[in-house]
Write a protein that binds this DNA or RNA. Structure first.
Lengths: 172, 172
DNA sequence: CTCCAACTGACACGAGTGTTTCAGTGGCAT
DNA sequence: ATGCCACTGAAACACTCGTGTCAGTTGGAG
């Protein structure tokens, strides 16, 4: 039950976080950039941790919306990679990786469980792309774990080098 | 030409960073933990950025030592995964991922180029594991890029879930 | 002994941090 | 009009941050 003002500011803060990162996010610069004040941010989100939690949830919502859009059935992996490698999605994916790494280093705080949650989200989608008779076998689990690793490893490479050609060729 | 005291303190700081992460590393707590002072750290490393650079170089040295130990020739991928999945190496790999993510968000500063550098380091090692007549073909490049993605994606999964059994099975 | 260089301790400076306190706004239902 | 309620502005608090200043204290070479 977030107020209208809250979702509006969250959206603005999200855009800010996409370009500036979450690691050294600071209330005063953020507030100044989105035309608000620390007072209001604290009032609406309770604390900085609350804000970060909301931003993480917002990013995860983007991710889940994607997974819903990608749909199920065969060819899921190729469609996922198409989305992951789109230049327009790089800020989101960089943010995603940042949150992922952070949640490993600091298991407490607002980041808690982020990495684990996304592994499960994606594995579920990949499972839906498998034939029903394979899905529940150990081989099925291994297969989708492998697909997930391939996609994410390729993403790491792409984010670092920007060499979409080489990485995409490697997935063929 | 680092002094004896410098390498001694760097080693202590490195051990500290392995358990506490690099993201919110702070001079005073670090100095207190390793029995030194901010004054000395600044004197020896010039600035905090200098310290972080030294720590990153130290971590990279660990990584390069591994790659040298792994050697070349067939079976490189399997040997690499054995090393990556060893529980004892988890702190180092978490630190590695943290630096990787950070260098993507903040291309300036001490992190600059870290992600790109490790991609190249690893690709080189994987290339050495390929037959000579494949190494220089586009197919060879695609193949080792794929192996690298597989290893790193699997590492991401393992660090988040700790489920070595499932992930190792996926690499089979 | 003298001298120099490596190293260290105590302290303060200015900037930036998240958060709190207090005092308001404006609009809307009663 | 009155009372409530979502929201906001200004200022301060109690830190922590990296860094600079100034004064030592070692230990070995000449």
């Amino acid at each position: 039950m977030p107020s209208a003002r809250e979702t509006e500011l969250l959206e603005a803060a999200y855009r800010y976080a996409l370009t500036h990162g979450l690691a050294d996010l600071s209330l005063r610069p953020l507030a100044a950039a989105i035309g608000s004040s620390t007072r209001v941010l604290l009032y609406l989100f309770g604390s900085k941790d609350g804000l970060v939690r909301a931003l993480l949830a917002r990013a995860r919502a983007d991710e889940l919306a994607l997974l819903a859009d990608i749909g199920t059935g065969p060819g899921v992996v190729a469609r996922l990679w198409e989305w992951l490698s789109a230049p327009a999605h790089r800020p989101l994916l960089t943010l995603w990786l940042e949150a992922y790494a952070r949640s490993l280093v600091e298991p407490d705080g607002p980041w808690a469980g982020f990495a684990r949650a996304t592994v499960e989200d994606w594995l579920e989608v990949l499972a839906s792309g498998q034939p029903a008779d394979v899905r529940d076998t150990p081989a099925g689990l291994a297969s989708r774990t492998r697909d997930l690793a391939l996609l994410r490893g390729a993403l790491l490479d792409l984010l670092a080098t920007g060499d979409g050609e080489r990485v995409t060729a490697a997935l063929g």
